[in-house]
Design a protein around this nucleic acid. Structure first.
Length: 570
RNA sequence: CUGCCCGUAGCAUAGCCGGAUAAUGCACAAGACUCCGACUCUUGAGACCGUAGGUUCGAAUCCUAUCGGGCAGGCCA
């Protein structure tokens, strides 16, 4: 639809020039004025004439009527003046030449405008804390982060996905103490992260009774910080075990990271930034701690160093950002975290600016809402948590039961169950605006009816099934559009690029999820009302087969953008 | 106390850089198809867009106030 609008805008410009020389609009102005009518029967795009009424000193309906009489464009089939709007209809020729053919030519590149070529985007997402449970609280950052990465990649950006692991801090002292006291190599090897978490929990329980344990933990962490050989070895082992398990989940989601540089990596990069802050005079001592005062910007101060001189979260983030700028020279550096951290990001972004780094405006915080389970807050203590691996396992199990019942002879059942099961959860999560708090209702997440992942997966598989049936047919006759369903479908497909652009502009994967539903719903209407392979007329049949193929292409691309895998058969 | 975010049909939401009858799914009530994939499609009912003001030719959308919910706020991340 973008190119259609552009062509119409140019024709509109010359038409307006004919009407009055007082109109000083550019093509871009007109482009921005176009909107979509509330009902598609009104038109494909609309040009509101209200703003022109002041310049022309005429009522909007009069203007619309005047334009409708003079307007000419090769891509427009008709125009109608209604209520001060000029409603514009696209020609079928345009839909065939500029949508169907374009999808066929560009294939999986269709929808991309290449606007990111030559640019670098860095994504900081997922970032679980090592040796802690990986639960649905991490689903947001993981899935939104990756989706944003795929969207940018689609537009041509060079993307770097960074898993900023929480792999440093006093919790490792605790873990080492707990391991030495209650753990064993065998138990940890068999139990993996679950065992590490159990040790961690055990430590906290015992430390409440025995304060001395905390001191022991601090000592062990100090030893770790001074590169004590044994503690380093243990630490690496713990990180390794955790990572191995997270990677299973990442694999189910089809996620790979380019870097796993966690907090530990930046410990030696902080002093330089602290020094810079100190020399610049930005850093002040307040109540013993080192802070950067931000009252001028209506924010509480940003804490850089504790009273005891040790570093804090913002310190490490600043050092990491500087490192990443040097390492990747990014045009965008995107952080996907819960909305609760908005203030912290605003603070240290501001500090980066005050430090004189001219790339401060390339830092982007993408917040998302809090997750609760069945209306209750997440709480590790009360056990109100759902581990991601368990959530996915439940979903996969449910799908596999259905497959067993409906389609027991399906090859590679496991693979399909995983794609559809994991996909249903991802789709459910990415369906709404990321900023909204989400109440995770298992029953809804695993529902297969209505606007769900399985509905989309099923539609895709249906396309594949039809195309398989049609394979071997020569479909290269001239396409003809003979129904409104076909035209509507092409119109929806033509909006893919707009969806991608909006999703990137707003950092909002749900735009794509919603778009997928639009495509599926439009295709299913078409499927229901039009015979495809069985169509009597050969050129009609061929057109419909090619349309089906176009839907498959676009859906396939769109699935990838929200990290949902696709399957040809279900 | 201060700041940020959210508040749309029974439920979950879309629409929010102002524009034509407020859209989708679930649930509910009818119906079509049961043929290319078991799915799906059609129709109906259901909303004074939290409340009150304001700006505008025009407000779910912008501004102010207010209520309700969530989150954050110097030594956690």
């Amino acid at each position: 639809m973008n190119n259609f609008k552009l062509t119409v805008a140019k024709d509109m410009l010359s038409c307006l020039a004919e009407i009055s020389s007082d109109i000083n609009l550019t093509v871009d102005d007109i482009l921005a004025m176009f909107e979509y009518p509330p009902d598609s029967s009104l038109g494909d795009i609309a040009f509101p004439c209200f703003k022109l009424s002041r310049i022309l000193r005429k009522a909007p309906p009069m203007i619309a009527k005047e334009i409708s009489e003079k307007f000419k464009s090769s891509v427009v089939s008709k125009v109608e003046a209604v209520n001060g709007y000029l409603n514009i209809f696209v020609t079928n020729e345009y839909l065939i030449n500029n949508v169907l053919y374009e999808i066929e030519n560009k294939k999986e590149k269709y929808g991309s405008d290449g606007s990111g070529i030559g640019k670098v985007a860095v994504f900081d997402y997922s970032s679980p804390n090592v040796a802690k449970p990986f639960h649905i609280g991490h689903l947001g950052t993981t899935v939104i982060g990756h989706s944003l990465k795929m969207l940018h990649e689609f537009q041509g950006y060079d993307c770097v996905g960074i898993n900023y692991l929480g792999d440093w801090g006093t919790q490792f002292g605790k873990l080492i103490v707990a391991y030495d006291t209650w753990g064993s190599q065998e138990k940890v090897e068999n139990g993996g992260v679950d065992e590490l978490v159990a040790l961690y929990v055990k430590f906290h329980q015992e430390a409440e009774k025995d304060e001395e344990l905390n001191q022991l933990a601090r000592n062990e962490f100090t030893k770790l910080e001074s590169h004590d050989e044994r503690n380093i070895k243990l630490w690496k082992w713990f990180v390794d075990i955790s990572l191995k398990e997270y990677q299973k989940t990442y694999k189910q989601l089809g996620i790979e990271f380019d870097s796993y540089k966690g907090e530990s990596f930046y410990t030696d990069k902080m002093p330089a930034q602290i020094e810079k802050l100190r020399n610049s005079g930005l850093m002040k001592i307040d109540d013993g701690a080192s802070i950067v005062d931000l009252s001028e910007y209506n924010m509480p101060p940003c804490l850089i160093l504790k009273r005891d001189g040790s570093t804090l979260y913002p310190t490490r983030d600043i050092a990491a950002a500087v490192y990443r700028k040097e390492a990747y020279n990014f045009d965008k550096c995107i952080y996907v975290t819960s909305a609760g951290q908005s203030l912290h990001f605003a603070q240290w972004f501001k500090v980066v600016e005050l430090m004189g780094y001219d790339w401060y405006d390339k830092l982007v915080h993408v917040p998302y809402g809090t997750v609760s389970i069945n209306g209750e807050k997440l709480a590790t203590r009360t056990g109100n948590v759902i581990l991601l691996k368990d959530l996915f396992a439940t979903a996969i199990e449910k799908v596999s039961e259905i497959i067993e019942e409906k389609n027991p002879n399906l090859p590679n059942k496991e693979e399909v169950s995983e794609a559809v099961g994991v996909g249903s959860v991802v789709f459910y999560y990415l369906y709404n605006n990321r900023i909204k708090d989400i109440n995770f209702i298992m029953e809804d997440a695993l529902s297969f009816d209505g606007n769900t992942g399985p509905y989309a997966q099923y539609t895709y598989a249906r396309c594949c099934g039809i195309l398989e049936k049609a394979s071997g047919l020569n479909v290269n006759t001239d396409p003809v559009i003979t129904s409104s369903e076909e035209a509507d479908l092409l119109k929806v497909l033509s909006k893919f690029n707009e969806a991608v652009k909006d999703a990137i502009k707003e950092y909002e994967p749900s735009v794509i999820t919603r778009y997928i539903i639009d495509v599926c719903s439009s295709f299913n209407k078409f499927y229901h009302n039009c015979q495809i392979v069985n169509a009597e007329d050969e050129s009609v049949r061929n057109t419909r087969i090619r349309l089906t193929n176009a839907v498959k292409t676009v859906l396939g691309s769109a699935f990838g953008l929200i990290c949902m895998k696709k399957t040809e058969k279900i």
